[in-house]
């Protein structure tokens, strides 16, 4: 079943066609990837899905409901979480509080209750903290829960960002270059980790990645874009042998 459906999506910045008539259907329960040369419009697609930009044209449906033009926090609450190409943690927050910021919508006490301690609030507060700890446990950061996020090493910050995204209890997780800046060893661990959370939380994952070993090794469906347009879609094998892709990526007649 289609979890995310994008029809005729376009985003123009002045004369620049960052995304141009993009159509895409994403089935639930799979690992999908968007690849393409730098500046092809991959992150713009993420920004359109998560509501950061309104699209110039086109519609986006999540789980059968239209989410085009909804504000980002509503889309997030519907179950789309993301990480960022450049890490966007709250650097002065503790590791735990970074995760807790994303736990908010599970608390259903009112603003007024938020200002005054009530037993219900205390109970929910405790549950959320426990949940945040569990997520930190999962990404292997529970023992650093009290540290400031900015003091974590880079690889751990990436994991923390994923933990924070998972705190939203998403059904669709968008990962923007999760392996950026990682060495092969770290990358391999990350791949296992992505598989693990996908199974554990029953997630559908869409990732942008330049590391081809991640994309080819992990994903069952790959879409290739260039200059904002989809130029190919298929399994890793299909993509690797696709002429247009090879041209877009490598330029005609150049070596790998």
């Amino acid at each position: 079943m289609a979890l995310l459906e994008i029809t005729n999506l376009s985003k123009f910045f002045g004369g620049v066609k960052a995304v141009d008539d993009f159509n895409y259907t994403l089935d639930s329960g799979h690992l999908h990837a968007i690849i393409g040369p730098n500046g092809a419009g991959k992150t713009t697609i993420f920004n359109l899905i998560t509501g950061i930009y309104p699209p110039t044209q086109g519609k986006i449906f999540f789980d059968g409901q239209e989410i085009t033009n909804l504000p980002p926090h509503v889309i997030a609450q519907k179950g789309i979480a993301r990480t960022f190409q450049n890490i966007r943690l709250f650097p002065d927050f503790s590791v735990l509080d970074n995760v807790r910021t994303a736990c908010h919508q599970q608390a259903n006490y009112s603003v007024l209750e938020g200002l005054f301690p009530t037993p219900r609030r205390a109970r929910q507060e405790k549950e959320l903290t426990e949940r945040a700890y569990n997520l930190l446990e999962l990404v292997g950061l529970a023992n650093r829960a009290k540290e400031r996020a900015k003091n974590l090493p880079y690889g751990h910050q990436r994991r923390l960002e994923i933990a924070r995204a998972l705190a939203l209890q998403p059904r669709l997780l968008l990962l923007d270059e999760p392996a950026a800046g990682m060495n092969p060893d770290e990358t391999e661990k990350l791949m296992d980790f992505i598989e693990e959370i996908k199974e554990k939380f029953n997630l559908t994952i869409l990732l942008i990645e330049h590391h081809m070993e991640v994309v080819m090794g992990l994903c069952d469906d790959i879409v290739v874009i260039d200059f904002g347009k989809k130029i190919a879609q298929g399994t890793p094998e299909q993509i690797q042998s696709d002429e247009t892709v090879i041209q877009a990526y490598l330029g005609a007649g150049e070596e790998l």
Binding site: T50, H73, A81, R88, F90, P91, D92, T101, E125, L128
Partner: peptide
């Protein structure tokens, strides 16, 4: 010390990222 405060601080650091974490900027 409160969670609402954490949301305010998150918004202060970066409203856009906070909203992607489900925090309502209008609120």
């Amino acid at each position: 010390k409160t969670r609402i405060g954490i949301a305010i601080q998150a918004a202060a650091y970066n409203m856009r990222v906070a909203s992607l974490m489900g925090i309502n900027p209008d609120l």
